[in-house]
Amino acid sequence: MTDVRSYIFDRLVRGVFYLLNLVAFYLLWRGHNLPGGGFIAGLASAISLILRSLALGVEAMPRILRMDPMRLAAGGLGLATGTGLGAMVAGRPFLEHFHLHVHGLPWFGEVHLGTPFLFDVGVYLIVVGVVSKMLFVFMQSTRGLRALVEEEERRYSSPLEQPLEESARAANREDDRHAP
């Protein structure tokens, strides 16, 4: 964002980053019966990422979030759908969930595991992916949509920027050139 980076802000945000993600994990974990859950946890994690992008500049984000956020979201949706499909494979109604209760573990006491947790993780991934994608696009768009990085340009604007009649012809010329 700015050219001059504040060292103090950077260090502070780095500390907050880990703290926020810890909070996010806590929210995700308790979400089954208590207030919390994938959506809120995802928002907390996304906020942590946004803070870091404020400190480091949005260009540095691929180093921290090594996946394309859209793929992260798609993977989360896949995980959430997958927990529903699992029940279908077992011959049960779509999205039926199963639980496993484990008693007497050291440290944890009673542990309550189940496919709803996986579903929540899916929601978490969707929210992190979608929110960070949106806000990174917003941050980059301050320099105009045309100034988005190359990859964004390809994805968000049409390859057919000319009027209909021109573009059809252009597409066709291209076809002819590549014809075997």
Binding site: M134, G144, R146
Partner: peptide, 13 residues
Amino acid sequence: TAYLVILLYRLFL
């Protein structure tokens, strides 16, 4: 809302 913001922004540009 996010969609609408970008749409209006693009209209403006």
